[in-house]
Design a protein around this nucleic acid. Structure first.
Length: 594
DNA sequence: GTAGGGTTAG
């Protein structure tokens, strides 16, 4: 009687699916000792682990780990629950545990565990599952094989294994064909993807979207447009793909037009636009759109917040950045590696390194190379170069391998602090200890390092000995050093190169004129100015911004457009006067130039 | 379909 009543209650659960109700029924089961019955327990686990709220998942886990010898069904539901709740680490752990307990996985287990290994980009794990599939004789299950295809196409370095599985499939459906299309798109072989797309006996919306995003993301916007027009059906993802295609090539107008015209916008559409503004340097517009998004009551995702934080970092919008930090806590996103790193970077670029370090230490073990690099670069740009190098050493001690960007931070720290010897030590260490071949940008740091230290001859020799043809940035570094150390002779040589390589750069003639001014060559200053006029070179006006009450105010030099510009200039005069009294003189070189 | 760290000068 009791048993039947409980079973009836349980059958209602998917419709109710409230954690409170599940708990009530479970309490009842405990009272009647029914939770000894694996079937009932498994139901509870199933319903709660299917639920996507973190609370009910936590409840399901608690139940699951109390069960002594979970059966196959329990493992399956729990693995699926882990996957839905984005705990692929735990899903694979459970799979390994169930294999250890000699439970044979079935066709229900494989797709989920394959997706878990796919999430972790764990090809080795995925291969083990493949072997197990063959041993269990499920090597012809269409659903299992399709997930296997996807795992290989995501985790594999090439499409070799994927193609092999595909070709050996006794039966192929739309999804398997699409795996081949999206796999080749992922590996950047658009032509192959197109071949599979064209040869597929049937195409789903997903296939259309895969190939569309392939064209959009590789800048082949005309082909993407054509596909978009040809599509028999479109969903929000199709619109989003084309929008991000426009954003990628910097065509903001077309992206905006599409964004305004699309029938339904979701979080991804908003996020793509916001991030598109960020990537194209329109930070102010990205924040304005974020504001609009909130007025439209669209909940931002973690990805949205990552973009917004990047925007805050670039603008130095500390207050808004702090607001985002508080907002993350409020809506209950846990601060893991990505958000943590973005927060650290934001605090560092806004000049509040203490806060950045606080976030860093709160991350515990959830730190990766990118997180460490954000801290190292952050310390370097905040003038804490010793600390930056100390963090680098700690990172290595903790077994995290630095990558090429980490070394940019390290070399930047050395350059800013004048640590010439350390700079060369780390530069050599790249190849010797980490098999990283220094790129142009690393050489750029070294030229900057030598140049700032006043070792201009050495810097020039270093440039000549480089394995690449120096780019304008390299010469620009050297040129800046010539200005800093008032070296006219080398400066003129560098200018000659720069005028050939980068004739339209507005800054170079300005720097040249500064060098002349610094060495009292007034005739040449005048000549350079004349040349600037002839070429139509105008200095890009210096621009700064300040954030008050979440509004970013931008100022251009000589600007009087702001409502409170008069007060601002009065305050500036006052501050300049005080600085003079305090013995701070403005940089004479810059004064002469304007 | 959107995604965190980056070399010069200004």
């Amino acid at each position: 009687m009791e048993q039947r009543a409980t079973a009836q209650c349980l059958s209602l659960l998917p419709k109710l699916s409230s954690l409170k109700e599940v708990k009530q029924i479970h309490a009842h089961m405990i009272k009647t000792a029914l939770d000894q019955f694996p079937y009932e327990v498994s139901k509870v686990v199933e319903f709660t682990s299917l639920s996507v709220t973190p609370q009910s998942f936590a409840y399901a886990r608690e139940l699951f780990y109390r069960i002594q010898n979970p059966n196959l069904f329990l493992y399956n539901t729990m693995i699926r629950g882990c996957l839905i709740n984005k705990r692929s680490e735990e899903a694979t752990f459970l799979y390994i545990r169930m294999r250890g307990e000699n439970l044979l996985p079935n066709n229900f287990t494989f797709p989920f565990v394959l997706r878990a290994f796919e999430d972790k980009l764990d090809l080795k794990g995925g291969k083990e599952v493949h072997g197990c599939i063959l041993r269990t004789g499920l090597g012809s299950d269409l659903y299992v094989l399709t997930t296997l295809l996807n795992m290989y196409s995501v985790c594999g370095g090439s499409m070799k294994a994927t193609t092999k599985v595909f070709e050996e499939m006794p039966l192929k459906d739309v999804v398997s064909w699409n795996c081949m299309v999206s796999g080749h798109v992922r590996h950047g072989s658009l032509e192959l993807a197109r071949t599979y797309f064209d040869h597929a006996p049937a195409r789903s919306l997903v296939s259309w979207n895969s190939i569309l995003s392939g064209y959009a993301n590789s800048g082949r916007i005309e082909e993407a447009e054509r596909l978009f027009m040809e599509m028999p059906k479109k969903d929000t993802a199709s619109w989003n793909s084309l929008i991000s295609g426009y954003l990628r090539i910097g065509d903001l107008n077309s992206a905006e037009r599409l964004f305004d015209r699309m029938p339904a916008r979701d979080v991804v559409s908003w996020t793509a636009m916001i991030d598109g503004y960020v990537k194209n340097g329109h930070y102010d517009r990205s924040l304005a759109l974020f504001h609009q998004m909130q007025l439209a009551e669209i909940e931002p995702s973690e990805v949205t917040l990552l973009s917004v934080l990047t925007s805050c970092a670039s603008l130095g919008a500390l207050e808004l950045g702090k607001w985002v930090h508080a907002y993350i806590k409020k809506i209950g996103f846990s601060i893991e590696t990505n958000l943590g790193t973005a927060l650290i970077d934001m605090y560092a670029k806004c000049g509040n390194m203490e806060k950045g370090l606080e976030v860093f230490f709160n991350l515990g073990t959830k730190k990766d190379v990118i997180t460490w690099t954000a801290v190292i670069s952050g310390l370097a740009i905040n003038g804490k170069c010793r600390e930056a190098l100390e963090f680098f050493n700690r990172m290595v001690t903790e077994g995290i391998k630095p990558d090429r960007v980490t070394f940019l931070g390290v070399l930047c720290a050395c350059a800013h602090a004048g640590f010439v010897k350390d700079g060369f030590h780390y530069f050599d260490s790249m190849n010797k200890d980490y098999l990283l071949v220094p790129r142009m940008e690393h050489y750029g740091c070294m030229v900057d390092l030598l140049g700032r230290a006043g070792l201009l001859e050495e810097a020039m020799e270093f440039v000549k000995a480089m394995p690449f043809e120096p780019d304008p940035v390299i010469w620009g570094s050297l040129f800046g050093a010539c200005q800093m150390h008032k070296n006219l002779e080398l400066g003129e040589q560098v200018m000659e190169r720069l005028s050939k390589m980068d004739p339209w750069n507005k800054g170079n003639l300005v720097t040249l004129s500064n060098i002349y001014a610094a060495t009292s060559r007034w005739d040449d200053v005048a000549k350079t100015r004349k040349k600037m006029k002839e070429k139509g070179t105008r200095r890009t006006p210096g621009c700064s911004s300040i954030e008050v009450n979440f509004h970013v105010h931008e100022f251009v030099s000589g600007d009087s457009s702001h409502l409170r510009s008069k007060e601002t200039y009065e305050m500036l005069d006052l501050l300049a006067g005080r600085m003079k009294v305090a013995g701070c003189l403005p940089n004479d070189v810059l004064l002469l130039e304007d």
